[in-house]
Design a protein around this nucleic acid. Structure first.
Lengths: 166, 166
DNA sequence: CCGCCGGTGTTACAGTGTATCACCACGGAT
DNA sequence: ATCCGTGGTGATACACTGTAACACCGGCGG
């Protein structure tokens, strides 16, 4: 799962972005989906930034003197990307993060949102998945989708809690 | 935890609302908090409705020919109520639901959001809590707060899936 | 060539949430 | 009683988030 115990930062983001873009191209080729320039650029913006971005942040980043990207176009691209698992929406932040790896249907995806550095990591937990399955069954509830977001402080930030953090 | 296996509906909502209001009054008395008319009315509106409500829905419901409640006032009341555990915010819906019972700090609160009836139930799961604790520890993440929201179909709705349920 | 269809550009608008200031009610201190 | 500080509310304005509707354009199959 690409563990970041010590380094953090831009090099890692670049690597993540490259992996994300490669996966997106392959996935769209395999499913005969249109990986258009706009979709590509939106995904790349999110992947390069490595932090959650709002749709308007993305629009601003992609706009320049010679190109204007409206937020509504970004939303459409994000719809496409989320439907295909290339980005995830962080409900508690109204923001989007890119995703470099495939997810199985029910593997207990968890988002870890760091208050200090603003970064978001994903992890998975079969034990949560199992516990949740039993809990839902007990409640007689038939699940379709779920979100699990934890806010706190990531390992890197509380490892160096006395420098520039916060 | 007040199990609704068969009846659902208005009678139950009224009962829930009464319990919620009683708890709120006691809690505010115990903590010497100001349970003002606006806060009371906002909480009551949410509790009586029994479904998630947006701040503007609440403002509209409380407004009439003789009183106008602005959304901004509702937000302030909701801030107060959420801080004191009297209502919960549903991040995936930008909406609020009332809560009739106390929650311990880490008891694994889960929101069950029904697509058919629009209702929201809460449940708790120590097993999820435990699994999540281990997962976070493994990731070196120090949690401060978490949200877990499951969307699907509640027991009552898929029990009678062929009548009016969408 | 024509028509269809998916993607994009554009405008407009609805919904969500915050900042700011003024006003008021209340309670304590003088 | 007056003064004043504090906390809650009313009101306006604004920023941010998201959707609807329509026009256009490019590709592709008839």
């Amino acid at each position: 799962m690409h563990d970041h115990a010590g380094h953090e930062g831009e090099a890692c983001d670049a690597e993540h972005a490259a992996a994300t873009m490669a996966r997106a191209e392959k996935l769209c080729r395999d499913r005969s989906l249109h990986f258009t320039k706009l979709r590509h650029d939106v995904l790349q913006a999110v992947a390069e930034t490595g932090k959650p971005m709002g749709a308007y942040d993305i629009a601003e980043r992609l706009s320049g003197p010679d190109r204007r990207v409206a937020a509504v176009s970004v939303y459409r691209a994000l719809d496409f990307l989320t439907e295909n698992g290339l980005v995830h929406r962080i409900a508690s932040r109204n923001a989007f993060v890119s995703c470099a790896h495939e997810h199985g249907a029910g593997e207990g995806l968890v988002f870890l949102i760091c208050r200090s550095c603003g970064g978001i990591d994903e992890t998975t937990s079969p034990e949560i998945e199992a516990g949740l399955g039993r809990t839902l069954e007990r409640a007689g509830f038939r699940p379709a989708s779920r979100i699990l977001e934890v806010e706190g402080e990531c390992g890197a930030c509380h490892g160096r809690q006395s420098d520039g953090a916060h």
